[in-house]
Design a binder for these strands. Structure first.
Lengths: 184, 184
DNA sequence: GAGATATAATTAGGAACCTAACTATATAGG
DNA sequence: CCTATATAGTTAGGTTCCTAATTATATCTC
């Protein structure tokens, strides 16, 4: 009756690109391109987007976002204190983004900011006791969830996947450095 | 000298989560979780985000975004005419998002909207000649780019990767349906 | 030591996608 | 027929992350 129209579910079928589709696209323009390569790249993008969305939903159950959780976890990994610029580097986001993440975490009492005594430009970000408690509380459920995402893969398969994934990542990095960049 | 501070590059090293880091996190809470599973999941998320960003940069060279390109490509796959709701389903995004994508594509003359004669609620989206031309023009470079993202993998490895990726996707889908949902 | 340059964090504004609410049309039941 | 409900598309507003400009401090060079 109520229909509870969860748009996400409806898509799951059609949203996955097929090999036929990739082939058709390539054939249309007579390109010398491996259709399977296109398919793999397309599927990886779809998987990445899917996992990203799933992750946001997962963390929202704890009142966090993916980014804000990663800030807390990274702080925990560095004895509860880091500079915003270090966080930006560890998380792979810009400093501007870190500022925003910390604004909310500070508002919620999970971290605090402190001026550096050494360098007047710096401000330390500190994991509060409440922040540490949040991490403790969510750890079992969070890690179980993370493990479950790759739960359909055997141990050996995970190693293989990790290796292949690493090389794809490397390929993308190489692609981003060289080709489209303006020489300036 | 000039330093050309491209933030993206700096991160590439540190942003990748390591096995040690995953292990430390799990050990801290004495959880019975496979550290490698955590690592694989983390890396997949990082790779997905990276590819997503790379994709936006790639398409911006043609004056498009990833989403808007996908609209054009999907239209081409369906004889140049679709309903917004079909596009939403094929692309795996909401109808609201499709409305926004089409607004811009229409403004740029790459698609047009037409009222349906059958159903007064529907509006067809139509690929214009200019839209088709855009696709033709960017095809060689675009598909070469897409192929290059998986260029470091052999043909056989691509098959394996596709299989493993499929099972991860499946795992995530299952995870999103059942566990955190409120019974309502 | 004073001016040019580099760096740390922030602010302002933009892009992509989301959910929820709204408008208009269609369809089903009494 | 005519009210109740479902559906198509849109609008309004929120989230996440980005780039570019701003402010404040540090460092290098002459």
């Amino acid at each position: 009756m109520c229909m509870n129209n969860n748009n996400r579910k409806i898509n799951d079928m059609e949203a996955i690109p097929s090999l036929v589709q990739s082939k058709r696209q390539i054939d249309r323009y007579n390109l010398d391109i491996d259709a399977q390569a296109i398919l793999v790249a397309s599927r990886l993008m779809a998987a990445g987007a899917q996992l990203g969305q799933a992750s946001e939903i997962h963390f929202s159950r704890f009142g966090l976002s993916t980014g804000r959780y990663r800030v807390l976890a990274d702080l925990e990994d560095y004895e509860g204190e880091e500079l915003p610029s270090q966080l930006a580097e560890h998380l792979g986001v810009t400093r501007a983004t870190v500022t925003g993440l910390i604004d909310i975490l500070e508002r919620d009492g999970l971290v605090s900011r402190r001026l550096s005594s050494k360098d007047g430009r710096q401000k330390s970000v500190i994991l509060t006791e409440e922040g540490a408690k949040k991490l403790r509380e969510m750890a079992p459920e969070h890690f179980a969830w993370l493990e479950a995402t790759v739960g359909l893969l055997s141990i050996d398969e995970r190693s293989v996947f990790l290796d292949l994934l690493g090389r794809v990542t490397q390929g993308i990095s190489a692609l981003m450095d060289e080709p489209g960049s303006k020489p300036k």
